[in-house]
Amino acid sequence: MTGVDVLLLALGAVAVGSAALVVGTRHLVRAGLYLVVCLGAVAGMYLVLAAELVAWVQVLIYVGAVVVLLLFAVMLTRAPIGASDDLDRPGWPAALIGGGAGLGLAALLVDAYRWTTVDLPAAGNAERIGEQVFSNWVLPFEVLSVLLLSALVGAIVLSRPDIGATRDDATGDRGRSR
């Protein structure tokens, strides 16, 4: 057990514990805040694993944007402050499938890797990641930009009720002039 292992164990324990609180808490807003802790711990694991660009992108996009969007959605759907009792379905099947998937995958990976050690690569690889993205992976990169644009347009169309109404209206565009 080196220092890296201890750090990974501690961050992994924080991530799994806060993830259990995300899926188990009865407070909607607290679920979002525990999600911040979980994503931050995973970003710390990326840092330890010498993937610093992914770690900072995780902090920027997940903690900075996705969680804020989720908290906005919690507030816009008028979530009650305090504990709410109707958040969960009665779920033995959920516990069975979730526990089976998690523990099964964990057993598979433990069996595959045992207690072997691997040398960490050198840190500071943002330049090499950038070279890879813009040489070997440039086509998926551009396709992803098109996907982001279409997701943006789709979100706008979904959240503007008048656009869908005029499209489904039998009178076509004249429905807008009323």
């Binding site: 991530a15 799994v16 993830a19 259990a20 995300v22 899926v23 979980c38 995973v42 779920g91 959920a94 516990a95 499938i97 979730g98 526990g99 089976g100 998937a101 998690g102 523990l103 995958l105 964990a106 598979l108 990976l109």
Partner: peptide, 10 residues
């Protein structure tokens, strides 16, 4: 693996 299992459960 444990995070994935917790996500499925959630």
């Amino acid at each position: 693996a444990l995070l994935f299992g917790l996500g499925v459960y959630g």
